[in-house]
Design a protein around this nucleic acid. Structure first.
Lengths: 218, 218
DNA sequence: ACCTATTTTTAGACTTATCTAAATATATTT
DNA sequence: AAATATATTTAGATAAGTCTAAAAATAGGT
């Protein structure tokens, strides 16, 4: 069907679209793929001819319905294999990514389905990322409060519940902004505070804060 | 390490070497790989530069120690994955080959070892082919009497126990010769006779016959 | 609106693995 | 041993995916 390289581009576009909630620029994609912008342009043209992406010169790129579906299937396989490696083969959650990068390209619908069944249709991979089902649906709620996340879960900051200027200024001061990745490193049971990772910095926040930040997971 | 294509060539050379107990010709390899002789020559040169094969122009090719080791590791992965698919994921033994052709190229020693352990260190794949261990040893006896094979097992005819001219003429008449593939299709418990497949022909032979033919498996 | 900086695309080249067609080496037959 | 047939290699071409360097388009600042 599609080459490894094509699938990797689709996956990267998928992640960037969701991260920035917008079309994806050539440069952003080049950075994500660790390659040169010129290579990205070449590949985008190819994907465009195959109707996997919508592309207008200089206007960035976004996934077509087919491209979206294809990307989700690759992500599904990646996360199922990660789950398999950790749950069945005694891998640690930090060792599985590179192997899953290889396994995600194996072509066999039956294999994916049987693996899913064998694993008991898991809803999240070892990193807390949701695993889409065979139809591509992420059954796990997509947008939730930061306070609802558990340890080691992560998401992208997509909104605020409290939009008072006091709260917003607090966010500015602490460099919390929409579009940023947030990961829960620790969670204190007794007061609901948590240690989060945001842009490579660790930050401890109270439950009042985490209760007012919307996080989009996956 | 090595590309999918390189690994596939090594595997093919391995099988042909054992089948004909000799160096492998360019044409034989082209047929096995379903490609053109000129493509084979190109690849052989590349493998030779990487010291995976011993090659002299017009003299055919054979695996170096490194090439042999590499081929066996690919075969090991192929057969472990086949076992996994049948034993854990409810595949039928006739559905697994193409998927294992993909999975055999996944690079991770730890994965291979953990998979082996998870499966209980199986000795044979679903087709009866022996699975080499991590050191590349085929623990299963290599040469055995045809009568010792079970249903669905197969091997290459490599010798006779009874070398009387009567027996040899019988073999000639029935087109059984050294180097030919033999597969056991059925085995009758009550008289030890078996139905075998040899060069796309089915043949029923008595236990007296199967007891005097050496088969090399794997 | 213009100039500059940044982003994106194009042009041409390289690598891997393949092909066809032609040339060369080896094997077989008479 | 020469002629013929077969096997193998070489030469040149193609497609996928990448690169560098140069050109073109867009965006930003005044």
């Amino acid at each position: 069907m599609f080459s490894f390289s094509e699938e990797n581009y689709l996956k990267a576009i998928f992640h960037l679209e969701r991260k920035y909630q917008a079309g994806v620029s050539t440069n952003a994609l080049a950075e994500e793929m660790d390659t040169k912008a010129s290579s990205v342009t070449d590949m985008i043209k190819k994907l465009s001819e195959k109707e996997l992406v919508i592309y207008k010169k200089y206007q960035g790129v976004k996934l077509s319905e087919l491209g979206d579906k294809t990307a989700i299937q690759v992500i599904r396989k990646h996360r199922l294999w990660e789950y398999f490696l950790v749950e069945k083969l005694n891998f640690n959650w930090d060792e599985v990514h590179d192997i899953a990068e290889q396994l995600e390209h194996i072509k066999s619908e039956k294999l994916t389905h049987e693996l899913d069944k064998f694993l008991g249709f898991p809803k999240r991979d070892p990193h807390g990322d949701p695993i889409p089902d065979a139809e591509g649906n992420f059954s796990v709620a997509n947008k939730m409060l930061l306070s609802e996340l558990g340890k080691a879960e992560k998401g992208i900051c997509v909104g605020v519940k409290d939009s008072s200027s006091e709260f917003l200024r607090f966010l500015d001061k602490n460099n919390i902004a929409l579009g940023k990745d947030i990961k829960v490193l620790e969670k204190e049971a007794f007061d609901g505070s948590m240690l989060i990772l945001i842009e490579e910095r660790e930050l401890r926040i109270s439950q009042l804060i985490s209760n007012n930040l919307y996080i989009k997971i996956q």
